[in-house]
Design a binder for these strands. Structure first.
Lengths: 229, 229
DNA sequence: CGCGAGCTTGACGTTGTTCAACTAGAGTGG
DNA sequence: CCACTCTAGTTGAACAACGTCAAGCTCGCG
């Protein structure tokens, strides 16, 4: 599968995580010895639902999807570079409740769980920060549950497009970075309906679509669909 | 609204929370001085979506629902005595993303947030435990998102009934403790359909229903509906 | 140039919501 | 104690939303 290497220096890492600044240099260096860097190609699995976590996964480069497997997959959310893929399994139940796969070429730092927990215990400020991150990640899911259980197709797709524009790509014009099927899985609808509504938005001048390239022309209308359901 | 009092002694509290045993007696006593006990009657709001949290809420007695307001409400989950109602706002974003209301007569310990955070910072083992609890609470929501986005009516209602029997009441025969409308809001469906499927389950001998009293007769069939969607 | 995966559109059947009418029971005032 | 009213629950029927099936399309790649 994946190319494996050891970190040169976490202190000088260009993809350094914001969380690290609360640790002492000595502790940061200790991470180097308990960390493996793995590169994944588009489509490869980073972890599988049902297995147990032995490492904390920090996403240095790329984008991944977090999804629940089944007859049809359900994408819970995307994670972009600079975030932990998963912190829950570090402190809570060790079993992954979802699978993770690379959306493009990614680089993941796998840090030994026991080691990281040990550091957290010794550095309350650091643990505090991690806890804050875990706490806030729940808010996304409240919104998600609300969205999919109350809104209908147009509203849900608008939600997803806004999510991609604001949370993931930070721009109004972006490459989808996924198939229509995945877009549907992220919006809890059938692939055919995702396509249909995309076409509708295009016909109404809300979006400009060229293959996977999407440009949001009328953000306010998208927002209205999102708000009104 | 509600009857207010001060705790006599958290050390001897009959509703004492499991989390307290990691704190020193001195610290537990300090909680007493930063804690207000409030009693709520059925239906009363304990907190409202959109407001800011200033206290951690520990549910000593009763059951509460955590719900998102809208034209139709959406019940995210129930919480029973002996659990925190909310820990996310203690460490993460302070704004409540949902409202909380009493399902029956309840008793809530409201502990000053700053004080509790201070204790957590000084007691890594305690903070560790709280973090573990927060981490695990996410798992319920993964399941919830999966359930409501993939299963249809019968499967979703079966999920809710199993949830009530196993997680909330810990018995196969229980009082619903809520209206049919609330049961529907907990299962993401219309009230009419919740009633219809209850009748169906009753006709098929899966449930025995007398008003709000529900007895699960054929758990395996309920489970099958839950599994197959 | 042909093949296949991903995409697109239409038609149709199923699922679920909404509307409406009706019932049962609890609470209220004469 | 009985009529009255109000709320929760129940059931049927019409309608809308959504998924599925099927057919055809496009584009990149060998």
């Amino acid at each position: 599968m994946a190319k494996i290497s050891k970190p040169q220096s976490c202190l000088q890492c260009p993809y350094k995580w914001k969380y690290l600044n609360l640790l002492k240099d000595k502790d940061i260096e200790s991470i180097q010895n308990n960390c493996t860097i793995i590169n994944f190609k588009k489509g490869e699995n980073i972890c599988k639902q049902g297995t147990d976590a032995t490492h904390a996964l920090y996403l240095a480069k790329g984008t991944v999807k977090l999804y629940i497997e089944g007859k049809k997959n359900l994408i819970l959310k995307l994670i972009k570079a600079g975030e932990y893929i998963d912190l829950q399994t570090l402190f809570g139940d060790k079993t992954y409740k979802y699978s993770v796969a690379a959306m493009n070429d990614t680089m993941v730092c796998m840090i030994n769980s026991d080691h990281l927990r040990g550091l957290a215990k010794k550095n309350p400020a650091y643990l505090f920060d991690l806890t804050k991150t875990i706490s806030d990640s729940g808010n996304y899911f409240y919104k998600k549950i609300n969205d999919i259980s109350r809104k209908q197709l147009r509203g849900r797709l608008a939600d997803t497009l806004i999510y991609l524009a604001e949370e993931i790509y930070n721009t109004q014009e972006f490459d989808l970075g996924m198939t229509r099927k995945e877009l549907a899985e992220l919006s809890s609808m059938s692939m055919e309906n995702a396509v249909r509504i995309l076409s509708e938005f295009k016909a109404d001048g809300v979006l400009e679509i060229k293959g996977k390239r999407i440009k949001i022309l009328k953000y306010d209308i998208l927002k209205k669909f999102s708000d009104l359901g």
